[in-house]
């Protein structure tokens, strides 16, 4: 127990350092990119550009800008957006992330439950028709890009059958198509991984022992089988969950969802430096946190993992 707490503290410090590194790298990369928010398409007069640059501190030496930024970041302040009329970036991210995360959360629950069920069913019916159908399904789910899936679902359910809404998120029915689109890949991925690990586990001696004790098939498959089969795939779940929670630009664009994915691309196109920085750091934090959680979870589930 004490070693577990020590481990958690260590991993936490490590995670913070990772976020710091990412923030630093992003900051300097951003300053290397030519162009700026007040250049390009907008045709502002040089004087106005100068005033604006002054206002947002873009004329200071890079190192001073970096220092100021990091101090604010440490207080959890991501600054103000340049394009969005000076709105707080924290507010924008919060609002957009809530939308993306809502869709993402439903997607994750769906993908994990169905993915696990598919993987288990495929493993226990190895070589039979069900297994082959599931294999075809998961191969397709992983190979077909999500804009193709989105378009197909949109045409079938939205245009041809006209039974599902395709624009925005104004009712629960509006969630169905984007969630389905997003769920395909992770569902297929989990199903495929789990099929492999489950087959491996079902061949182990301790499964035979479980059977020899007269346990029910459910106990054998879930308590003894699934538990062991899931452990190796937990590692993959962390990044996957982070990725889905933060929203997909493509899917948000197709279904007109005002989420974080779309916002991020918008800020890149607009060269909204603070917004790009803020979103990048936020995404990195989500990713690092998921890995942190998974790492701890892994240790809790598998007693064999050495904590040093």
């Amino acid at each position: 127990m004490r070693s577990l707490i020590k481990h958690i503290v260590k991993r936490f410090a490590y995670s913070l350092f990772t976020i710091f590194l990412i923030a630093t790298i992003t900051f300097f990369l951003m300053n290397l990119v030519p162009g700026g928010p007040f250049l390009s398409e907008k045709n502002l007069s040089p004087q106005i550009t100068e005033v604006m640059n002054d206002k947002y501190g873009l004329n200071e030496p890079v190192i001073i800008q970096y220092k100021n930024y990091m101090i604010k970041l440490a207080q959890g302040d991501l600054g103000v957006s340049i394009i969005n009329k000076g709105r707080d970036i924290n507010d924008i991210i919060y609002e957009k992330f809530l939308i993306s995360a809502k869709v993402g959360f439903i997607t994750i629950v769906l993908a994990i439950t169905i993915g696990i069920a598919m993987g288990v069913v495929a493993a226990i019916s190895k070589g039979k028709l069900v297994d082959r159908l599931l294999t075809i399904f998961s191969t397709l789910g992983m190979a077909v890009p999500n804009f193709v899936i989105a378009t197909a679902l949109l045409i079938i359910f939205g245009v041809k059958l006209r039974i599902l809404p395709t624009y925005g998120l104004s009712s629960s029915a509006h969630f169905i198509l984007p969630v389905l689109t997003l769920a395909f890949y992770p569902m297929a991925y989990i199903a495929r991984l789990l099929r492999t690990t489950m087959l491996d586990v079902l061949d182990q001696d301790y499964i035979r022992t479980a059977r020899s004790k007269g346990l029910s098939e459910f106990q054998v498959l879930v308590k003894h089988g699934l538990r062991n089969a899931i452990t190796p795939i937990i590692t993959y779940l962390g990044p996957m969950i982070a990725y889905i929670l933060t929203g997909s630009f493509v899917v948000e664009k197709i279904f007109s969802i005002p989420g974080l994915g779309g916002e991020f691309i918008g800020s890149i196109n607009g060269r909204d430096y603070p917004m790009i920085m803020g979103t990048t750091i936020f995404l990195a934090t989500i990713m690092v946190s998921m890995n942190f959680i998974v790492d701890i979870l892994y240790k809790v589930i598998d007693p064999r993992i050495e904590l040093n």
Partner: peptide, 8 residues
């Protein structure tokens, strides 16, 4: 060594 479940 292999006949007991390592996670239980």
């Amino acid at each position: 060594n292999t006949s007991l479940n390592p996670l239980l």
